[in-house]
Design a protein around this nucleic acid. Sequence first.
DNA 1: CACCCGATTATCT
DNA 2: GATAATCGGGTGT
Length: 198
Amino acid sequence: MTNKVEKFLPQSFFRRDTELVARDLLGIILVRELSNGQILKGIIVETEAYTADDPACHAFRGKTASNAALFGPVGHAYVYLIYGMHFCFNVVSHTPNQEAGGVLIRGVEPVEGIETMMKNRKIDDIKNLTNGPGKVAQAFGISRQLSHHTLMEKGPLYLVEGEKIATNQIVASPRIGISKAQEMHRRFYIRGNPFVSL
DNA sequence: CACCCGATTATCT
DNA sequence: GATAATCGGGTGT
């Protein structure tokens, strides 16, 4: 009869090497609280790490108005519009001696609020519901309004602890859709999980 | 299933 | 004017 208490992630979790955070975010629960009080939850199953010294990172050419969140406090959200029509959600995380960095959330396994996610996505097929960064954002109702927002406390969008993923179940591979630094293996996913994008 | 391509717009060159 | 950390629909095998 023990109540399962949601444990938030401390700032120290995000103030570490971005690649390590990307690995450790696998298995973490993403929680969305809609304005009507409805809760959406999903387990993070696919991530990508981007650091300021990486040519593929939005922060590589320095701070601008659009990538400012990447330079802001760790444990907050960085949301941007891609290809004029999709939002992508990142978790700001980097070591104290780096000025910027973040982890792109590419895939989650839906846990709660699946009906609402299907409505948001205007599809009925669970396999295509949240297996891609734009799909996650659409299913969870994440737009740029949530950029800069903290993910470390109760609110419209936050992260809580989940099941620990064994190291031997984590696969590293090249990142998707980038034209630079394709040789770096900074995409991580849970082996065999059906909500991994590729 | 694989491959190709158009949609749509903020941001930077 | 070109590009972009994507998606989904179309065509052909």
